[in-house]
Simulated assay, not measured.
Amino acid sequence: MKNFRREGNSNPVPAPSGGVVAGDGVLVGSLFGIAAIDAAEGESVEIASVGVFEMKKTSAQAWTVGAKVYWDGTNKVATTTASGNSLIGVAVGAAANPSATGLVRLNGVSI
């Protein structure tokens, strides 16, 4: 196809306010992904928007496989709390309460 440009599993975006550290979640509009590198605010950063990632989570939550996972942009963690947060994927591993991280399969976009 002559109009094909790339797979799209990762995309460059401007780093949000405060910048990002490699491995951080990044939400720009409706595009969510994990930063590949450190970047200062406004610098271009490649984010992976598809795949399974170990992410920081709300510690006081237990996750089950298949649970919807949302991005809490205020606390910069993944959560199963829908209210006020953006859907980013599903849990692909159980996570205990308490625990610092959980496995998330990203959707590619947030809703």
Results as ranks from 00 to 15, higher is better:
S59A: 15
S59I: 06
S59H: 03
S59Y: 06
A60S: 14
A60V: 11
A60M: 07
Q61D: 13
Q61F: 05
Q61M: 09
Q61V: 11
Q61L: 10
Q61H: 13
A62D: 00
A62G: 00
A62R: 04
A62M: 00
A62Y: 03
W63I: 02
W63G: 02
W63L: 13
W63C: 05
T64A: 15
T64K: 05
T64P: 03
V65P: 00
V65M: 00
V65T: 12
G66S: 13
G66M: 08
G66Q: 09
A67V: 03
A67N: 12
K68S: 15
K68F: 08
K68C: 07
V69F: 06
V69T: 06
Y70M: 12
Y70S: 10
W71I: 11
W71V: 08
D72G: 00
D72F: 02
D72K: 02
G73F: 05
G73I: 07
G73C: 09
G73H: 02
T74P: 07
K76L: 11
K76V: 11
K76R: 12
V77F: 07
V77C: 09
V77K: 06
A78P: 01
A78L: 09
T79N: 12
T79Y: 05
T79P: 10
T79A: 11
T80M: 12
T80A: 13
T80L: 11
T81N: 13
S83H: 10
S83A: 15
S83W: 06
S83Q: 14
G84R: 07
G84E: 08
G84I: 07
G84T: 04
N85M: 03
S86L: 10
S86N: 07
S86I: 12
L87T: 02
L87S: 01
L87R: 00
I88V: 14
I88W: 01
I88K: 04
G89Y: 07
G89C: 12
G89S: 12
V90E: 08
V90N: 06
A91Y: 03
A91D: 04
A91W: 00
A91T: 00
A91K: 01
A91Q: 02
A91P: 03
V92D: 03
V92F: 00
V92S: 02
G93I: 08
G93N: 14
G93M: 13
G93C: 13
A94M: 14
A94V: 15
A94H: 14
A95G: 14
A96D: 14
A96N: 14
A96E: 10
A96P: 07
N97S: 15
P98R: 02
P98A: 11
P98N: 10
S99C: 06
S99R: 04
S99H: 00
S99K: 01
